[in-house]
Nucleic acid binder design. Structure first.
Length: 337
DNA sequence: AATACGGGGCG
DNA sequence: CGCCCAGTATT
């Protein structure tokens, strides 16, 4: 245990990543910057989060600025990053923090919207030096391989992480474990030759590091057909707020799902009746994959009385960005090869 | 315990 | 194309 800790921390001190939210003293990082980074990185790879992080902190440099900003501005900064509930929760939590001050403990952070066990442990250890072991996808994979566990339960992973955590340097230890998982002990092609703890790894000893952990079973992707109308063009269009959980809070083209029992023309008729609009020609079709569903969206032109709004200021999903591109006058409707 | 929730990267 | 990513909230 002590040898494993020393080996990993030595590797981390020499080869750990230099990331923008790691500025400051170890164990005493800026809580706001750590918090934003941790939320942004939920289910999001670091390489992708970097650009959003810079953009977000530029727009909302302090928790007070974030708390006073309109939600639409926060969602606009989050545009394209996915899992938009993160932005809504972060905004709501910022208002609590602006009024009551930053929590200073795991339990205090855990009580904020959008802050679960992982994020609370990360902030508590990185910014407040609290001895809390994080449990994320990296930690799960590294520990599963160290112990050669095919299907480690969440309880098992947390217990291992708790036992292994270096109480002297909890923040650095958590970062070290995650860095190892992200840069060496990777899912597909781990670089065991460069691993500082290979000597302690049972999966490596068995010669099958990628056998652990076993892939998660995932729900099959659902196919969804939908119709949308573009009233306007790629720059100015009639937009509606999306309600519900899917893309909730974002704006988008007026859309109706095509039910299994109906044709797309019937759905289009329903949509245009709701909008009091007249359908026109088919502009094109967009295919959009979203982890758990595959959306085939037919986009029609339409005429109505609603005033188009500038799309540049609206927060849109990738799906709606693709759909709007069909209205770009510069782009040929039928691309020539 | 199971499910919903985005989008992109990589082998 | 399949699997995964610094997970959380809801049911």
């Amino acid at each position: 245990m002590a040898a494993l800790r020393a080996a990993l921390l030595a590797w981390f001190d020499a080869s750990g990543r230099d990331l923008p939210w790691r500025a400051g003293i170890e164990g005493r990082r800026d809580p706001y910057r750590v918090w934003v980074a941790e939320v942004l990185l939920q289910q999001t790879q670091v390489s992708r989060g970097l650009g959003y992080y810079e953009r977000f902190l530029d727009a909302f440099p302090t928790v007070q600025v974030l708390a006073q900003a309109p939600l639409e501005a926060v969602l606009k900064a989050w545009e394209g990053c996915g899992y938009y509930a993160r932005a809504r929760h972060l905004h709501r939590a910022a208002q609590q923090v602006a009024a009551q001050g930053f929590p200073t403990s795991y339990a205090g952070w855990r009580a904020l919207p959008g802050v679960g066990p992982y994020t609370a442990a990360a902030i508590a250890s990185l910014a407040f030096g609290e001895a809390r072991a994080v449990n994320d996808g990296n930690v799960r994979r590294v520990l599963a391989r160290l112990g050669a566990q095919t299907r480690p339960s969440d309880t098992w992973v947390q217990a291992q992480a708790d036992a292994l955590l270096d109480p002297e340097r909890p923040g650095a230890w958590n970062e070290a474990l995650m860095d190892l998982g992200a840069t060496v002990c990777t899912p597909r092609a781990p670089r065991c030759a460069a691993c500082p703890v290979a000597a302690f790894c049972q999966a490596f000893a068995q010669g099958q590091p990628t056998a652990f952990p076993a892939p998660k079973v995932r729900a099959p992707v659902q196919e969804v057909r939908a119709v949308a109308v573009l009233m306007g063009d790629a720059r100015r269009a009639v937009l509606e707020p999306r309600t519900g959980t899917l893309l909730g809070g974002l704006m988008g083209l007026p859309t109706e799902v095509v039910e299994a029992s109906e044709t797309s023309q019937q759905a289009l008729g329903r949509l245009c009746a709701r909008l009091d609009a007249t359908p026109q020609e088919l502009l094109g079709e967009v295919v959009h994959g979203m982890t758990h569903r595959r959306i085939l969206l037919q986009v029609y032109g339409a005429r109505g009385m609603q005033a188009p709004q500038p799309v540049a200021q609206a927060a849109l999903s990738r799906l709606d960005q693709k759909a709007l591109a069909l209205g770009d006058q510069q782009a040929p409707l039928f691309p020539v090869s």
